[in-house]
Structure formats: structure tokens, C-alpha cells
Design a protein around this nucleic acid. Structure first.
Length: 349
DNA sequence: TGGAATT
């Protein structure tokens, strides 16, 4: 058996949308290459996703390609973070610190400066209030090792930062494990993707400074904001500057009501139907469903069939549950390469 | 008193 230190094929994937199914998760990563296994980590009792998962590839090359291609992938209101998973046997628990009483003006930058002295920071965040956009003066710092976290708590707990007035309160973030304790059984895990579930409104995403983003120093490559790409679950990635034509800091604002590139609520706000042009002539309705599912509840997929040529006519229609979901899908997928063709998406007129 | 980074 290969020693765990050599294993560079197992990836940890963070910031998964809450509603992402195992099937969708797998299909995104399968587009890179063959997978040994994949799993979204869930609460054993409720089945709720913890928002992260694992994907193990058969080859290191594919694992690296998955990082290059999928790290930073926008999915619903989040951006995936993809990195090599540390071997489970390592001392990787208790590395996450919860911080209270941060000075109001602190962002991750100041947090990293303050905490970086005590070790390698894998991830950090400052929570902000969605309404006021102000810091909640609460944050998290995830270190690489337990020793670093221990050291930071010993050095910084109850200390008043240079620009602050209150002493910092530091705790191990998951010492209580409240949310993982067995509670009352609510419902069994639903394995089937159907029936269509109600999507969470865009505004329910969490926020930290910069919104869901490419987190802090120390981790593997971050896709820079200037190197945006679209991901095509079937045809592979391609550069496309049209994606996320708002800056990362406006993520939260955009989640509250999409208003991008000509997609305006006044052009009906009523049509849920997307006209999909240039889908090629071998595209199935199932493929369309897979393509659009990350953007909401797909009610109907239709690929028009040419009976004479016995092939798809090269266009179709996809009906989403709401105008917002349709707008979101158009915003994300228009111009995006699907089976080596740029999709042309618009509201059905 | 708080999100979701080790199955």
C-alpha cells in the first residue's frame, strides 16, 4: 500500500453549495479524468452537507489538473476551493481558531498579518454583516498544524491588538462540536436528486470581506481575478472574460439580485425559459439538465430533434424554476464552451 | 458565541 505521504491524488474541495448533490459534485470532477471515489461530507443525522468534500483521482496528473481547472470555479453563490488533501493521519484537528473582538476595520489582511507570525495560515476570514457590510469583529484562522494554533492562542489570547481597544478572545473553533453532535433525528438522507427542491435565495450566502473568494495565503494556486474562466462540465474549461463581469467584492451585492450584462429585471422578470443555441447535434436533454442544474431547479429540458437527419437540430430550451435562476444560468453559461462550441444563451422571446 | 478544511 502506498504510504499516505506520497498520495497526491486525493483532493479536498471546499465551499460547496449547500444544495449540490453527490451526482453533480462527481460529474464536475469526472470531466477532468477518472475518479476512484468522491464524497460530500455530511452530517450523519440530518444529511446536511458540511460544505466540503473529497475527490480521489486515479492519477496525480489529473488531480493537479483539477486544481488548476476547478479551483475558484463559481458555483451558485460560491467559489470552489480545490487543494490536495492532507493525509488523514496527520495532526490536522484543532488547527482552526475562532477569534472575537477584532478591531472593526480588520480584514483578512490584518488578520493574516497578526496571526501569520505564529505559523502557516491555510485559510482565514472575517465575518461581515450582509446588511451593513461591516465587520462583525469575528473571524476564523485555520493553521496548518495544531502546534501553530496552540502557539497563536498562547500568544494572542486576551491581548489587545495595536489598533484595538478590546482584548482578543481566541478559542479553538470546533471545540464544542455543537453542530456535529447527534441531535433529534429529523429526516433521512435523501439520495435521489428529485423531486426538485427549492433553491435557497441567492442572498442566503454567507459573506466575509470579499465574499466567497479565493482564500488566504499558504494554500495552492489561486485563480487570479484577471484570469477568469468558465468551466464546462462536459467540454472542458476555456478562458472567457464574460464570466463574473462584476468584481469579487461585489459578489454579495450580485447575489441579492442579478443585474449583469443586459440582464435586467424589466425585460419581463417573467420568462424562465432559456433559448440554447449552438449545442451541437449530439446533445441530449440529460446533458442539458446536468449543465444547468448548478444554477437552480431545472424544470424542463428540450433538445429539438430533426427527424429527417435523425439528429439534434443544434438548439433547445431549458426551463428554470424562476427568472432569477434563468438569468443566473445565462450569465454564467453564455459563451461558455460546451462540446467545443460556444453556447449562445438568451431568454426565449 | 460562530462558519463549515480532513471522510
Amino acid at each position: 500500500m502506498m504510504s499516505k505521504e506520497e498520495n497526491k491524488t486525493n483532493l479536498i474541495v471546499n465551499y460547496l453549495p449547500q444544495t449540490l448533490t453527490e451526482e453533480e459534485f462527481r460529474s464536475i470532477f469526472l470531466s477532468i479524468g477518472p475518479i476512484k471515489n468522491s464524497k460530500i461530507v455530511r452530517d450523519k443525522v440530518t444529511g446536511n452537507s458540511f460544505g466540503f468534500g473529497f475527490v480521489e483521482y486515479e492519477s496525480e496528473t489529473d488531480a493537479q489538473r483539477a486544481i488548476q481547472t476547478l479551483d475558484g470555479l463559481p458555483l451558485q453563490t460560491k467559489r470552489l476551493k480545490v487543494a490536495i488533501a492532507k493525509p488523514g493521519s496527520e495532526n490536522i484537528k484543532g488547527c482552526n481558531i475562532y477569534v472575537r473582538n477584532l478591531p472593526k476595520h480588520y480584514t483578512e489582511k490584518e488578520l493574516n498579518e497578526m496571526f501569520g507570525k505564529y505559523g502557516k495560515i491555510v485559510n482565514s476570514r472575517v465575518m461581515i454583516d450582509l446588511q451593513t457590510k461591516e465587520s462583525k469583529t469575528v473571524g476564523f484562522v485555520l493553521y496548518d498544524t495544531k502546534e501553530e494554533a496552540d502557539n497563536a492562542i498562547a500568544e494572542l489570547n486576551n491581548k489587545v491588538p495595536p489598533s484595538g481597544t478590546l482584548p482578543l478572545l481566541l478559542k479553538y473553533a470546533d471545540d464544542s462540536k455543537k453542530f456535529r453532535q447527534p441531535g433529534q433525528i429529523q429526516q433521512q438522507v435523501q439520495q435521489q436528486p428529485s423531486p426538485p427542491q427549492q433553491q435557497q435565495p441567492f442572498s442566503q450566502g454567507y459573506a466575509s470581506f470579499g465574499g466567497p473568494r479565493f482564500p488566504s495565503p499558504g494554500g495552492p494556486m489561486r485563480t487570479p481575478a484577471g484570469n477568469r474562466f468558465r468551466f464546462n462540465p462536459i467540454g472542458g474549461p476555456t478562458n472567457n472574460p464574460g464570466l463574473l463581469n462584476y468584481n469579487q467584492n461585489s459578489f454579495v451585492t450580485n447575489n441579492l439580485g442579478i443585474n449583469a450584462q443586459g440582464l435586467k429585471q424589466e425585460n419581463g422578470g417573467s420568462s424562465n425559459v432559456i433559448f440554447c443555441y449552438n449545442i451541437g447535434n449530439d446533445t441530449t436533454e440529460r446533458e442539458l439538465w446536468t449543465l444547468f442544474k448548478p444554477y437552480g431547479t431545472v424544470l424542463k429540458c428540450n433538445a429539438l430533434w430533426d427527424a429527417q437527419k435523425n439528429q439534434c437540430k443544434g438548439y433547445g430550451f431549458v426551463t428554470m424554476a424562476t427568472w432569477q435562476e434563468a438569468a443566473h444560468a445565462i450569465q454564467e453559461l453564455n459563451g461558455y464552451y460546451f462540446k467545443n462550441r460556444p453556447l449562445s444563451l438568451s431568454f426565449k422571446t
